[in-house]
Design a protein around this nucleic acid. Structure first.
Lengths: 337, 337
DNA sequence: AGCCTTTTGACCGCTGCGGCCAAGGCGCGG
DNA sequence: CCGCGCCTTGGCCGCAGCGGTCAAAAGGCT
């Protein structure tokens, strides 16, 4: 998933639910690769382009003006995994948003968030590159609404921003937007952002706790560090190894050649990063296995094959050591949240 | 630290602080291997026998009757690391104690805890093997007091047990015990335990949260699974490798022979566990490095040597990849909590 | 252009990994 | 007791990774 334009399937499911009975829900979910009858898989990612297309298809069937607001309103912190927990446990609302600013990149490369002090308070800015066609417009509105929705879940008193700024032109009606946000919503602004006054951001969260917050941040920092310190060459090698694993364990020389290096030079580069090719191969196998287990269309035998194990039993044993449970058990746990 | 009789240095520091000015604090801490002038190292473990001896030495200098109570009263949940966080985030007090029952073994092999339903409520039992000489008696009282102390930190209302049971005979005075626990304290009982009524154990904790609790439990479960599913042979191999690393990377055949196996059979055993010798060696190196970094008497150069790296720079690179920060930075972070 | 430093790539000894096969040990049934 | 089947063990070996060595190539600076 790294480096590719994916978003979490959570938004797709929520949008379809918020759209109500005016659309064919099953067809919409199938359009983005979600099995409508399967239990929800929290880790499933879907291509961003397909998500935008689905939003546009929904807008073609029903009046979607208020859809982003209803979608955002339905978001729950516990549906955001570790980031949601970190948001909840942060000591103040401002610290919560700082968590999003720092760690959202662990989940998606499509958007980035920024906290920016300004006159009258602090802006929580949503950066999303690309053309502002209808799908992305709806998606941006939903994202801003969800950012306020989760804030309301950690705040001990009713909460509204000072103002919401949206870059694209206004839809036909904005009454629902302003009613829900509880503040003016300015379309055609220079950026997509929520403006909070600093008193609001300094308010302690209901479940804020320094110890838990620190623990969660340490774990997220470790993941982030891996993402940001890894040389591009190593990342490319991971992708090449993952691609080659279905044909058995790739040889270092093959991977090196694919990257334009001799085996010895490739070896040196890995060593500079404190790593060996065998370790890289094993990590890649593990990551690939965990990812494939989230995608329920692959059988366990198929995953063993795709991860380059000559026997399913060897895959089971390795996976059990990595994660602590068997692949089947792990998948069962994923399905039931 | 695995499999050896160690306890956390936290208790030693707290006992010395609770003992007040009647003892030579620096000498007592030095007796168990704690540098009195260094910042506190939360991960430092000390031999249990030494801890008991220190308690007895303190009792030889001051009246230690109330010392366990004062020690227990000073314990803070945030000083218990991940277990303290899990205790705090559990949804009820009973679930908090269930966390201790399940995960305490990750920290020490000296004691075990058990929740046992009985008439009038549920017993939280402390199991500690060995002779009940004075050091252990004081330690048991302090442990029970701390178990109540941390419960009082998650409970929204004042909390007392129904009764406290202690196996060893009563000290000269028990008034401070009963005043502090807020219930009868029965010495000479059949076991060491706290009796709570079930209504108390069902009470929601102040910061109880299902999502956070589940996340913390999952992480602790992964650690526990590693501890409980690892074959003894693999554990022994780890110890042998750690021992041999200061002489450079040990060869598989040497380690195998030390365990009474041929290299091929040893290799098979590892494979049955889903592991290779190289992976085992690397994990051992990492564990050893992290442990040695907690012990401030070793320089970074020395740790690189003890973990079998031919150059400190190679150690730094590998450590950075493992943990996300340099060894020096990691140590600095440990010192400042 | 010359010089110095760094990087590259070929080579190679050592060791781990895993397949293969024969020998030995154990348990069970006749 | 003996024969048979199954499982474990250990030796052997081909392949590939790991890391040291050295000469050649590349890059940077004056």
């Amino acid at each position: 998933m790294r480096g590719m334009d994916y978003v979490t399937s959570l938004f797709a499911r929520k949008v379809v639910a918020a759209a109500g009975s005016g659309i064919d829900a099953a067809a919409m979910l199938a359009q983005v690769g979600i099995d409508p009858d399967a239990p929800w898989n929290p880790g499933q990612m879907i291509p961003a382009a397909r998500y935008y297309a689905m939003l546009e298809a929904i807008a073609g069937q029903i009046d979607a003006t208020d859809l982003p607001i209803r979608t955002g309103a339905s978001m729950r912190l516990d549906e955001y995994g570790a980031l949601g927990l970190a948001f909840k446990a942060a000591t103040t609302l401002g610290a919560s948003y700082a968590r999003v600013e720092r760690y959202a990149r662990l989940w998606t490369s499509v958007v980035e968030y920024e906290l920016r002090p300004t006159t009258g308070g602090t802006l929580f800015i949503l950066h999303r590159a690309g053309d502002r066609h209808l799908g992305m417009r709806l998606s941006n509105e939903a994202t801003l609404a969800s950012a306020v929705s989760i804030a309301r879940q950690v705040c001990p008193v009713p909460l509204s921003p000072v103002e919401v700024l949206i870059r694209h032109p206004a839809p036909p009606r904005v009454a629902a937007h302003e009613a829900w946000f509880g503040c003016p919503v300015r379309f055609g602004a220079g950026l997509d952002a929520i403006l909070y006054d600093d008193e609001t951001l300094a308010r302690p969260n209901i479940l804020g706790d320094e110890g838990i917050s620190h623990y969660l941040a340490a774990h997220l920092d470790a993941e982030l560090s891996e993402l940001t310190t890894e040389p591009p060459l190593v990342t490319q090698a991971r992708a090449a190894i993952a691609q080659a694993l279905s044909e058995g364990t790739p040889k270092m020389a093959e991977i090196a050649r694919g990257l334009g290096l001799s085996a010895r030079s490739f070896h040196r580069r890995l060593s500079d990063h404190g790593m060996t090719f065998q370790t890289l191969t094993e990590e890649t196998r593990r990551d690939l296995a965990e990812g494939l287990l989230r995608d329920e269309s692959h059988s366990l035998a198929e995953i063993a094959f795709l991860t380059g194990f000559s026997e399913q039993s060897a895959f089971t044993r390795a996976f059990k050591r990595w994660v602590g449970t068997t692949p089947a058990s792990y998948r069962k746990r994923l399905s039931h949240g």
